[in-house]
Amino acid sequence: MLGLATGPICLASCGPVVLPWMLVQPQRVRSHVRQLSIFLGARLAGYLAFAAVIWLAGIALARSGTARSWIMGGVQVLLAVGLLIYAAAWPHARCGFVRRRKNDLVQIDAASTATPKPRPTGAIALGFLTGINLCPPFLVAGVRAAQLPTLAAALMFFAVFFVGTAVWFMPFLSLGVVRRTPSFLTVARMAAVLLACWYGFTGGSLLIEKAIYG
């Protein structure tokens, strides 16, 4: 119920990462289902890892502002790096984020069918990072998980919480039917760069603030 109720906030929190990333995927619903499944799987892994840490460390960690800031800052900087790599790597298939082909300098101006098939690496990295991105509902769930008697209960709590929030991501599958044009892909990549700048700025300033003021 917590996951379902706070889903729109989770969606708003992860949307800036998911949307540009989904928009540069090839125009096929099947591909979107596959990529979103990998993304959500990695996100679940992030949830469970956080649940385990929070249960082991106790409720103090969930309530500690300093720890929260360090984690949030670090995650946001990593998200920025991930989005930048994704935006830069997409048309040239150089990094591990997209599958290499024989003639792999696939230009963004080529027809949409020529877009390279994505590797799961990007989905896994971005999914895991959004999974441990400390949005408000996530922290509420963290406090509850830290109070549970066993680790298994904490993990189960977070897994069910994940299912509730994951329902809200299903509308992203509809992006699979939107026609991809070279302009469309360029816009998505530019937006990814802008969002990376934003995450880099907010994460970086959070880290700097904590480094200076503690």
Binding site: A12, P16, L19, P20, T186, A188, M190, A191, L195
Partner: peptide, 22 residues
Amino acid sequence: PRLRLVPWAILLFVVVLSAALF
């Protein structure tokens, strides 16, 4: 000519981020 596409990217950026940050 790709500069023409920047406003669309900024539109996507501000719409998504506005929803995230309220």
